[in-house]
Write a protein that binds this DNA or RNA. Structure first.
Lengths: 149, 149
DNA sequence: TCTGAAATTGAAAATCATTTTCAATTATAC
DNA sequence: GTATAATTGAAAATGATTTTCAATTTCAGA
């Protein structure tokens, strides 16, 4: 956490941007949750501690946090962009339940390897990738079976 | 193409929806392009032949086309939803260039297999998945190297 | 073929997430 | 400390998509 704050500050300095009270508060709130927050959710969290911080500033700061490599966008099928922690968190894929919306994070080195190879075969230099599997989680399948409907 | 139109009509009938002039025209325009069209692009295409068809109708009809299993959404990293043909088109993944925005469609049965297995391991029943690899295409890499910048 | 209920249409307004504008404030290099 | 360039909050603007609503169209059944 201390480390992330340093990374953030360094990233700002490098870009000639200022280290402000608001930016640090917003980063802190982001680091405090392990959820995949939407911007609005984060704004609500920030607001509890610092009601004077505006919506636009949260949006702007989230871009900076992404720019610093501390967050990455995830797409859970709805249209709003959510962020998950990137720094110190391994890349992973998502299993997203179409029924309840919950998701699992998974990682398979074999798949990663094949993805890399697949790209190379097309003379394509991969930078990052996104793999989301949509389907039904165990709980929702059981619900379906028992309560059928 | 004739086949797709039948699929569409059947899907409408099943849902107690009506087969209208507008819907058929919009479907036709969609089928006529192999591009990954955004709704706006499709509207422009439709408009050339049928200026009386409204924007909202194009949006509404695209949802129906998706519902009939004739189109699927693709996410090329920008925020607008684009559609590609689904019917009679094999599933595939995308290699998306961060520089020029162009993309390749690729398919790797080994990866598909592993994805299936990965989901099963979590007692997750996969329905569909999305895999997008972002990076730099051959052309943009060359441009970078030669013109450097 | 005609009729009527239900579905659909186009245009405009509404919505929702996100971005921009702008005057006032603040961080920081000197 | 001071100047200046970056940042802020609030409100307005944006852009994609959805909804509203009165007028029109489809189509099942007479």
């Amino acid at each position: 956490m201390q480390k992330e704050i340093e990374v953030f500050k360094d990233s700002l300095k490098k870009a000639n941007q200022k280290i402000t009270h608001q930016r640090l508060k917003i980063l802190q709130s982001f680091l405090n949750t392990e959820k995949h927050v939407s911007c609005d959710e984060l704004y609500q969290m920030v607001r509890r501690q610092n009601p004077e911080i505006g919506y636009a500033t949260v949006y702007r700061t989230l871009k900076l946090i992404q720019g610093a490599g501390l967050a990455r966008e995830v797409d859970l099928g709805d249209k709003i962009s959510r962020l998950e922690h990137e720094y110190g968190h391994k890349h992973h894929d998502h299993l997203i339940c179409l029924e309840c919306g919950k998701f699992l994070e998974v990682f398979d080195p074999e798949i990663e390897e094949l993805q890399e190879r697949l790209a190379k075969k097309q003379n394509f230099t991969p930078v990052r990738h996104k793999m989301d599997i949509f389907g039904y989680c165990q709980k929702c399948q059981e619900k379906e079976r028992d309560g059928h409907k």
